[in-house]
Design a binder for these strands. Structure first.
Lengths: 224, 224
DNA sequence: GCAAAAGTGTTGTGTATACACCCATGT
DNA sequence: ACATGGGTGTATACACAACACTTTTGC
């Protein structure tokens, strides 16, 4: 038994900065699609699992290892790659704002963040892949607290709300948002305030992962 | 570039009979796991898409071609197959009750339906795959009207409710269930009644696919 | 007429939404 | 003192959950 095909892993990497949801794209330096922007990917190695491959690719572009990572979908259209048959297992990842800033610093000509609302044309079928990732992200945001993976460890409620508004693409009521988030009790007050702002200093919160796990076990549901 | 691996497609095939959710399993006639029960699968052919492969496998075991089919997950653990590296793209499928009966008729020693609550040990990592499929099915049932894919074209509200109770694994209130289903208006009365029962004859309904599509476009949400 | 399942509304309870003003800080 | 965003409570509408009796049919 032999198959004349290859298995690749592609990563949709999301960041959040300037109240915009950002996507990491790289410029291909070889054919096919030389010079086109694409999402980072690579071929699966013999001794690695799919998720390991995704983390390897993620790390190679961002130097981030422990980001949120989730399998999205597997694409296998016969003609999706002009070189031949390539099956692509797509993963999507959420990068913390602190890490985002480091990556932004090493920006070169062939790697950059783009606002997902202004995504350029992408090589292969990567536009389709990204669109699916966006739908999934939006869907998951409504019933799972993923937002914390895109912010810094400590954040204000307003920052969190702005993130949700960006991803869900609608405005949320400030008081209702705060009430719901605080009622679920998955946030912990740090007692600190963000200083150096030109108005009242907002309280800083962290995501209480243990509390969240505990609640999840009890069949708790988060919805927004 | 060369990879020493194979891509397989495996199908979790669900049916519904006797108020039980059923899973189609086959007995392997070759090593590895010879004599074990497994879910149907096969290797991806060069000229077929992933979903086409899933349909081919589905058809080869059930003679059903147009069942509900959805990609579930891709499994790629390094040692999941003793023969070597095999990536498996899993699909799950829902078989109408009418088709179920045909398949049940051709039951042989090496293919059978089993109640998912009494699934035997399965070869490879298929138990894990089936469990994931069950979770996904349960999840989707709550917010997408998939039930109709497991019943006959015409069904009674009680039958529909029993199906939901089986899949969701909890009891539902009859009046509330009927109210909600009928309020969404995705059902059409046929005007017919099911005769030959030893009590009052229940009305028969069909799923109104067009209405459902229309409502979905308007951002309607189904929840149970 | 009896057994068995079909069919049918109302009421309370909790949840989601809409909404406006005062507070702290920097300039 | 003024501009900027932070922080807070209530009233209303809506959705969900609980609940029991009458009707039809076959035997």
């Amino acid at each position: 038994m032999k198959q004349d095909l290859l298995v690749a892993v592609d990563c949709i990497i999301f960041g959040y900065e300037g109240e915009k949801l950002q996507l990491l794209v790289i410029k291909r330096d070889i054919e096919p699609f030389q010079g086109s922007w694409v999402i980072p990917g690579g071929f699966l190695q013999e001794n690695e699992n799919l998720e390991e491959a995704a983390r390897r690719i993620l790390y190679s572009k961002t130097s981030v290892y422990n980001a949120y990572l989730e399998q999205l979908f597997t694409f296998g259209e016969v003609n999706r790659d002009p070189r031949g048959r390539v099956i692509s297992v797509a993963y999507f990842s959420l990068i913390k704002s602190t890490d985002y800033k480091l990556i932004a610093g090493i920006t070169s000509n062939d790697i950059k963040w783009v606002d997902v609302k202004e995504t350029p044309e992408l090589g292969f079928d990567h536009k389709i892949i990204v669109n699916l990732a966006l739908e999934r992200l939006k869907g998951k945001f409504s019933y799972q607290p993923l937002g914390f993976n895109l912010l810094e460890d400590e954040f204000t409620l307003t920052e969190l709300q702005q993130l949700y508004e960006t991803v869900l693409n609608r405005n949320l009521d400030k008081r209702n948002f705060r009430k719901r988030i605080l009622d679920t009790a998955i946030l912990k007050e740090t007692g600190k305030k963000r200083a150096g702002v030109k108005n009242r200093q907002p309280l800083l919160y962290t995501f209480d992962l243990n509390k969240y796990k505990e609640l999840t076990k009890q069949g708790f549901e988060f919805k927004l």
